[in-house]
Design a protein around this nucleic acid. Sequence first.
DNA 1: TACACTACAGACAGACTTGTCTACATAATC
DNA 2: GATTATGTAGACAAGTCTGTCTGTAGTGTA
Lengths: 194, 194
Amino acid sequence: MTPTKSSRPSVRDRILSTASELFYKEGVNNVGIDRIIAESGVAKMSLYNHFKSKDDLIATWLQQRDERWRIWFKATVERLATEPSDRVLAIFDALQEWFEQPNFRGCAFINSTIELANPEHPGYQVSLHHQQTIFDYIYSLVKSAELSDPEILTQQLILLFEGAIVVAMMQHNIEVAVRAKQAASVLVTAKSKS
Amino acid sequence: MTPTKSSRPSVRDRILSTASELFYKEGVNNVGIDRIIAESGVAKMSLYNHFKSKDDLIATWLQQRDERWRIWFKATVERLATEPSDRVLAIFDALQEWFEQPNFRGCAFINSTIELANPEHPGYQVSLHHQQTIFDYIYSLVKSAELSDPEILTQQLILLFEGAIVVAMMQHNIEVAVRAKQAASVLVTAKSKS
DNA sequence: TACACTACAGACAGACTTGTCTACATAATC
DNA sequence: GATTATGTAGACAAGTCTGTCTGTAGTGTA
């Protein structure tokens, strides 16, 4: 039943994979170490050999998720639109694809920040960095589209962006992505130089 | 040092007051029963005589906070603006006043929903109800201002609203209220019938 | 073959959690 | 004044949590 050692992912990857799924679905505070080792089929000492502590595992998870999410998001936006001005709005189409995933439960970085409630936690800095890189990416799209007041516009788009994520999470309502895109379209048009 | 019994608030109120402060500041999962009884100067059995369980205390807290927050929000909006069209935008000025409070840590209902991660929890329904009443109130303002597509506009304003709350919480950035108001102004203008 | 490394399995400590129970004190009411 | 309500103080049970430790099995390498 269990795959052979060679075909199986490494112990570290199995731990991170299981932790990722559970942490996102149920929250970092609601998932214990024992759950993670049981579901990943790993010895407890193996976990503590690869990660200094649970907090370290959480921070590593967030770091990995930050990288992967950004790669996915960028690729999705660029798949959905090619023109710079279209790509600014396509971020909300990408959002919708995210919302449609059956296991969607909001932004892991917002959620973890709230759960940890501690700015000293290593995961908090990762979360802030995540939001900053999202800003940078959207800002680059806005600049490419040659829209006025790019910084202000980006900040406004981010409010729609984060708002949509939170409302979609709370109400299980995918439609908000469309509403956000409509609103963004009005804001973008107002900043068009044409 | 301790006030006399007669001048002191009731045991139930002291428990709720302490729980409210701690639950909001540190999160429901990070605050234990023992903390609450110690800081409110109450016996453990007194707490369990007034509340069936910790979950019951959480739900009661959210219910009380829902009522009080809505009363505060409505009063603040109506203090800041009188004309219907101004009141639609004044919701973001009220937001800013909220953000400026030193103990601001986002929306208790979003936070609790994330922490509990369980739609069956009695507090979850309270949170959904809270969001619905916010929608209803903003919708009533939009209707009074006689703007087009009131439902769609309200949904869009709520995205800015919730987005501002989350970003303000994450980044400790009060300025987002101004950005949200600017964006809302553009959306409202686009829906003006004049 | 011998050694080192990695992982498994599970006991264990110590701290923390919620909720119950008892014993005692104070306040209000008949 | 006696009784009933309510609150205090703290022990306690039963479970959870993180993190450490021991012993054993398997694998790769010298």
